[in-house]
Design a protein around this nucleic acid. Structure first.
Lengths: 162, 162
DNA sequence: GCAAGATAGTTTGACATCAAAATATTTGAC
DNA sequence: GTCAAATATTTTGATGTCAAACTATCTTGC
């Protein structure tokens, strides 16, 4: 595929994986953030290919393994996504017997979810893959890891829930 | 909302915007990457609320303003997303008269897209908002910007198209 | 008590994303 | 020339995201 740039001096750069970067985006933090997050997610997903594990389960199972019991709303807050986003994932996890729902006796609207033994096993398997992925990222990031996380956390703190 | 942690010493941390970070994710680059990208995107989207501008248009219009004419496949490569992802966005842009499609006389399967005058105007409007967003990010990131972009580019180079 | 408003969860609709399958067309081998 | 393989694009289906609308239930004020 040939893509011609307007002129030589403002022609887009090309990194080692042959991805063209439009000049208008070269110094834009948001762009690099998005692309990095996407390749990271794709790489994690690729590691789960051919398994019965789904990337979307990981954060939920991990959170539930830390907090024994949570309502969907609490879970939504901890994992940082909208309530409505969780509905279908929780349904899938329940159908597969990875989580249990327990009615709140004091509030008919509400229920809590917790891991089943199957869920704990599934979490362990997912966690092993996730750790492998983390190691890859750690290796790429190297000594800058602490600084990187600090900057990213600063972005979340400054823009989040704003 | 009350979320009880298992114990005090491994209880999740809380940053200034009241987002809980599960301990299992605290030192995980991928997690912070995802959350930072999400808040960045949400902040950009929020800036476009109440306007007729859509965040998804921005990268395409920007790329087209750099490369005068591209086929969907070329565009897909430059913006780093799958071909199929672009179809509906391009359709929307065409319907709104922001881009023009021109048949390739040598290949009936293929066509090229380019900005219309309306498209150029729309791109200018979006770019103004995007620059505002960039400034916000730059301010948050501060002197670490170059280093941050270098790390993110390293992640993309190492994991991308792998 | 009862009506109004708050809250918990789900549903729906708009967007994005990918991968795989389907179409249409071109290229290449013979 | 014809048929097979490659290519360009679209369609379809699975995920995942948000916001807004909807249902059911609970709480509050009176």
């Amino acid at each position: 595929m040939t893509v011609s740039a307007k002129t030589a001096e403002d022609s887009p750069s090309e990194n080692e994986s042959d991805v063209l970067i439009p000049t208008a985006f070269r110094d834009v933090v948001g762009y690099h953030l998005r692309v990095a997050q996407e390749v990271s997610f794709q790489a994690f997903s690729a590691m789960l290919e051919k398994s019965d594990l789904k990337p979307g389960w990981y954060s939920i199972l991990t959170i539930l393994s830390e907090y024994d019991e949570l309502t969907p709303s609490e879970l939504s807050r901890v994992c940082g996504r909208d309530r409505s986003t969780l509905t279908s994932t929780l349904k899938g996890l329940a159908i597969r017997g990875l989580i249990e729902r327990r009615q709140n006796p004091n509030d008919q609207r509400s229920y809590s979810v917790s891991l089943t033994d199957e869920g704990r096993k599934m979490h362990k398997r997912l966690h092993a893959v996730a750790r492998e992925h983390d190691r890859r990222l750690d290796e790429i990031v190297g000594k800058d890891k602490e600084a990187l996380i600090a900057i990213l956390a600063r972005i979340v703190g400054a823009l989040g829930k704003g």
